[in-house]
């Protein structure tokens, strides 16, 4: 099973919660995972808890925890806001 590269972009203060040293907004966190893993497992590896409060987007669309990733992609994780 060859590996794919996932760039994890953290927003709404998540990088502070995960205490990632000198987090660069543009490049984000790079993780190597094997093909076809679900979003759930990727999140677990990165140490994020309390999944319900966060929204995950990839390629401009909202994705849910069971989405599988076939090729390398960029995932943005953010806290939900209310518009306005």
């Amino acid at each position: 099973m060859e590996d794919i590269i996932i760039t994890l972009k953290l927003y709404s203060g998540l990088e502070k919660e995960l205490k990632i040293p000198d987090y660069n907004v543009n490049s984000g966190v790079i993780i190597k995972v094997n093909k076809g893993t679900k979003l759930k497992n990727i999140i677990a590896d990165s140490g994020l808890q309390k999944l319900s409060g966060y929204a995950f987007f990839s390629g401009g669309e909202r994705i849910n925890l069971r989405t599988k990733f076939m090729e390398s992609a960029e995932i943005s994780c953010l806290k939900i806001s209310g518009g306005g």
């Binding site: 709404s12 409060g53 909202r62 806290k79 939900i80 806001s81």
Partner: peptide, 24 residues
């Protein structure tokens, strides 16, 4: 509620910028 107490209280309505940017 973490929307009203979290996003709004900390970052105001501009918490939507990154969210909208990710959601297109």
């Amino acid at each position: 509620n973490d929307i009203s107490a979290g996003s709004y209280r900390n970052f105001g309505t501009n918490a939507n910028v990154n969210l909208n940017n990710a959601g297109g």
